Computed example of a mutant assay.
Amino acid sequence: MSLLWYATRATGEVTLLFLTIVLTLGVLSALRVGGRRAPRFVLAGLHRNLTLAGLGFLAVHIATTVADSYAPITLTDVVVPFGSAYRPIWLGLGAVAFDMIVVLTATSLLRARIGYRRWKALHWAAYACWMAALVHALGTGSDVRSSLFLLLAGVCAAIALAAVAWRLVAAGPGNAGLRAGTGLLTLLAVLVVGAWTVSGPLAGGWARRSGTPASLLGKAGTTGTTDGTPTPRSTRATPSTDDGDERGDGG
């Protein structure tokens, strides 16, 4: 396996963690949380700096993904969703998340010009952006069956869900119907993603069903593990019609 592949995996997971922290800090800022030990300007600065750090890891994640010749992923696939030859839906959600991050960052820089109301309306998309990034990680990640990855994804999901719930509860007595509807929609989304994760990425045959090109499927040059997931011996393998791929993402 190449260093680029390891870098892609690591930076992708770290980026998801940063997105979760930034989302939570955004909720704290929206609720005007602050005090002597953590003044609001400190939270705002932390939110900004962690956003920039997350963008740095995201840039490395994208660069290593495109540079690694293992999967046919191009720069166009990074920006234009659902057109990739490699897992188009799940990679496409990553492109959607990236496009939304660019828009959210740009509008934050132009906040004074576009106005607070427009900026606030646009930044509701941050929740959808986080969800798209999570599903992208589950659908394309090669560590989905790893206990450490599942722990990371579970912790990030729990933190994000708690932040959303806190914002809905602490928003005040107004718009009770809207807040209740948003809460139910959020809960439904969590249940759908959870059910899909169990029946999709965690189930057998996901590599084939997710849209991995036939040229990358197979167990040639690999050894099987107890759960049927091939373990790589080298960075390349002779294609076959078997499910799974040589990078051990779980066929």
Rank of each mutant, 00 (worst) to 15 (best):
T24I: 12
A163C: 08
S142T: 15
F57N: 07
Y116I: 14
W90F: 15
Y116W: 15
E246V: 13
T229F: 06
F82D: 00
P81D: 00
L23F: 15
S210E: 06
I73L: 01
R179D: 13
I62S: 00
I101N: 06
F98A: 03
A171R: 07
I73C: 00
G34F: 09
S147I: 10
L184D: 04
A158C: 08
D77C: 00
G221H: 08
A163D: 11
A207Q: 11
R209A: 13
G228C: 05
R145N: 14
T105E: 12
D245C: 10
A125C: 09
G194P: 01
A158D: 07
S142V: 15
Y6G: 15
I101S: 11
W206C: 01
G177T: 06
G83E: 03
A189F: 10
H61N: 09
T64A: 09
G12N: 05
A170C: 11
T223F: 13
A237T: 12
A214V: 12
T140Y: 02
W130I: 08
S108I: 06
G35T: 07
A176E: 12
L151P: 12
T186L: 15
D249W: 14
R32G: 05
V14G: 07
L138H: 03
L152A: 13
A85I: 04
A203L: 01
A195Q: 02
S199D: 07
G250D: 05
S146I: 03
T20K: 02
E13F: 01
Y116H: 15
L93P: 01
L148I: 11
A237R: 15
I101W: 04
N49I: 07
V79K: 00
L25I: 04
G94E: 02
S210N: 05
I114A: 07
L3P: 12
T238L: 12
A125H: 04
L188A: 14
K219R: 15
L19E: 09
P39T: 08
Y127I: 11
A153D: 08
A71I: 06
F57I: 06
L16M: 08
V78K: 00
V102W: 04
G177K: 10
A157V: 06
P173K: 06
P213T: 06
L4H: 04
H61K: 04
A176W: 01
L109Y: 15
E246M: 15
R179Y: 05
A153I: 03
E13L: 07
G172L: 03
I159W: 13
L109A: 14
L188F: 14
W119P: 09
A195H: 02
A53D: 03
V14A: 14
A137I: 03
H47W: 10
L93K: 00
R209V: 01
C129T: 14
A30V: 04
R208M: 06
L151E: 12
V78H: 00
H123G: 03
I101F: 04
R167M: 13
F98C: 01
W5N: 13
Y116C: 07
V33R: 03
D245W: 09
N49W: 12
G181I: 08
A157R: 01
L52K: 08
D99E: 07
W124R: 10
M131P: 06
